[in-house]
Structures are given as structure tokens and as C-alpha cells.
Design a protein around this nucleic acid. Structure first.
Lengths: 209, 209
DNA sequence: TAGATTGTTAATCGATTAACAATC
DNA sequence: TAGATTGTTAATCGATTAACAATC
């Protein structure tokens, strides 16, 4: 490991990929793996795998490769999979519902503890084990629960308002599905589904790359 | 415009943002806008706005800015919003259902014409105007319909198999929600929701940027 | 005209990749 | 040892940004 320099964003994204890959290797009963093999499975270059890992330490053995079990555990520490994150979902529309029901999140230790909506007709609706609470109850909820992350799945025109409300509380981050740039100091991760469609279509039309 | 060089991927992603921004400006009744203002709304640099647009042409007037109406129409041509894309969704689980019901897509001319699932208990289930068809009917469907894009919303372990099936047909692209790297020559756009959660959490923990 | 803002160049910044000494 | 593969450096590639001449 060099020194404590800032880790590039793309590296961060890839750490999750490495972790999943190592899990598979582990399940396949593979004990040692070379950066070349990891790279091949992910469709990237082996030097990138090694460089990415080197931001966090020296995990391999020259001439041998990486011990799958060990590296997997190191990655667990690095990406913090073992910490449980409490999540609430704001907006019980299509996307909000999908998030609440999505099994992949629970598996990764994202624990959804509340769903809110401003639409009274949705209040009380059951989503899995949770039922939809009215948005006006948010403050009460924050007083009684620790919330780490908020999933913002409200219509575009409501998103900024909700964020301003959220700034009153002590949340750690927002996953934003609304197609706008939120103005806030809270860390935000944007997920823009329509933009993915558009980007694909654009590539198809222009035949780029 | 310089020449017909390859357009960087990030630029492509931003074209959709510009289009949405221009739409808002138009609705606000604004006639002319400077790159500085667009940039401020999106939280980027004005030189980036100008450079991005310059890949496609010269749309502004020096000393004045961009005519909102005109630029909006240019962007429509560039990103091809007016073309209608026929889409099928494979996988009628949480994500598939959300996609089918998501109003944003229809608005953007992505027309969902079919939903498929391998689970017979889901077949016949109504999702909006569509009802779920069994996966085995796929070939029949392709013989009778033009399908441009496929949304892949199946479990991870089924994804690669489905892709191999899809290669028999003449689709233009895949939006992949399964958390794996698909091996295929069809253009793929990955949407990885869990990875977004992980990336946010990672940033929070490391306080990067 | 004077002021404003574009389009574009050149400088900077950041990320990927090739190459290789170190070493298992 | 000989072969393999790491960790890291340096070169390359690509994207962002500052700066400014052109010009409305």
C-alpha cells in the first residue's frame, strides 16, 4: 500500500464487484486466484485489479495469487458489508415499493425500517412486513429510531423539499431516484433509470465504443 | 463543432441532463440561457457545458447565450427522444414490475410491449395494461413484434442464460439489472442498485470527496 | 461601442494500462 | 531453481477546466 491518498470513485465502485467475484470463487471451492482470473471474470485488466487492491493493502503472494478466503474477508472489512445500515424509504410508488421488496438489499445488510408517503391513500398499505406511514410522521420516527440512509423515491417536484426536511435530521446519506440534482450537504448517490435507458439508446444510435 | 470524433461516455450521460434542464427553463418561460446558468443548475462547470455541446454543433450566440427553445429542439434530435423504442421486460419480480409501472419511461418514448417470466405462477398477472407471459413464448413474441430493447430483471443466476437466448433475436440493447457482467455482443447498460448503496456507504465511511 | 458569452485551445487533472523488478 | 504473479512505477489515455480570442 502506498499511502493514505484519496481513493478514486471508480475504484470504490469496483470493490463491490471484487467482493461478489470472490464470493463466487469461494463457493466454487477455489482457494487461490490470480489477478488475471479476477480480471477475466469481470472483463477488465489484471493490472487494474492489482492497482485497485493496492489502495487498501498487500493481499497477494507473488507467484501464487490471492487466497480467496482471506481476500474475501479483507474486502468485507473494506466495504463494510458486516455493518448493518438502517434505511427508510420515502415515496411508496413503484420504485419505493420495488426497493422495499428487493431481497438483494437485505442480503447486503441494508435493513429497511420504514416507508413514508405524502399520499394519505397509500398510508397503511402493507409492503412486506412494513406498512406505509404518512410523511408528516417523519419527525416522530426520527426521534425514536436511528436512520442511516434515506432512499428518495418521490416525484421530481417533491424531491428538493424532502431533502430540506431531511437536513434537520442526522442521516448519513441519500440514495436519490428523482431525476434532479439535489442541493444538499448530505452525501447523495444518484440512481437515474431513465438516464440509463437514454444512454444506452444514444450509444446504439451513434455506435460509440 | 470540431470533427466527427468519438464522443466520451460521460458527455452522453450529460446530454440527458441538459435536455431536462432546458425543458425546465422552457417551462419557466426563459428565452435565453448562458452556459453559466445551465452549469449552476446542474452543479458543474460552464466550460464543461460549452465543451459538451460543442461535440454536436454550435448552438449559442456569443455575448447572448443559447436560445432555450432552439437548443431544446437540437437536444431532442441529438438524444433521439422523438423516436419510439419498443421494450420488453424479462422478469416480473419487484424490479420488473416497477419498470413496467414507471411512468417516466413512457413519457420518454420507451414503450413497454411485453413482460415475461419463467415462473408459471406469475403468468397472466396484470401489470398495467400488460399481462405476464411465460418465458417460453418469447420466440413466438419476437416473430410477431419488433423489439428494440430488453430490460433484464431476472435473478443473477438466470441472467446469462437469458442473454444467450436473446442473442438469437435482433435486439438493439439490454438494460441489465442483474448484478453480473454479461458476456454478449449486444450493447448492455448495467443498472446496479445494490452497488449504488454500497458505493454511498463506502464514501460515507471513508469520507471521500 | 462596451459588455457579455460563446467555441476552442491548451493546461491540468485523474484514471487506466503496460511493463518490470521483487519475490513467492 | 525456473516459472508465475505480485505490487508499483511510469507511460498513456481520457476527461475536465481555465483561459482567451472571436464575436454577438
Amino acid at each position: 500500500m502506498k499511502d493514505k491518498r484519496k481513493i478514486p470513485k471508480p475504484v470504490i465502485k469496483r470493490m463491490g464487484l471484487y467482493y461478489r467475484c470472490l464470493n463466487k470463487l469461494y463457493e466454487e471451492g477455489i482457494e487461490y486466484v490470480a489477478s488475471k482470473d479476477i480480471a477475466a471474470r469481470l472483463g477488465i485488466k489484471s493490472s487494474q485489479v492489482r492497482k485497485d487492491l493496492s489502495y487498501f493493502g498487500e493481499f497477494g503472494k507473488r507467484g501464487v495469487g490471492y487466497n480467496v478466503d482471506q481476500l474475501m474477508k479483507k474486502l468485507e472489512d473494506i466495504i463494510g458489508v458486516n455493518k448493518i445500515w438502517n434505511v427508510i424509504v420515502i415515496g411508496a410508488g413503484n420504485i419505493g415499493t420495488a426497493i422495499v421488496n428487493y431481497p438483494g438489499l437485505k442480503k447486503e445488510k441494508f435493513n429497511i425500517i420504514g416507508v413514508f408517503d405524502a399520499d394519505r391513500s397509500k398510508v397503511g398499505k402493507k409492503l412486506g412486513k412494513l406498512s406505509v406511514t404518512h410523511f408528516s410522521e417523519l419527525e416522530k420516527f426520527f426521534n425514536k429510531n436511528i436512520v442511516d440512509l434515506v432512499v428518495l423515491a418521490v416525484p421530481e417536484n417533491a424531491a428538493q423539499m424532502v431533502v430540506e426536511e431531511l437536513e434537520k435530521y442526522n442521516i448519513k446519506g441519500i440514495i436519490n431516484f428523482a431525476p434532479i440534482k439535489l442541493r444538499t450537504k448530505i452525501p447523495v448517490e444518484d440512481v437515474d433509470i431513465t438516464l440509463s435507458f437514454k444512454s444506452l439508446v444514444f450509444r446504439i444510435e451513434r455506435e460509440i465504443k
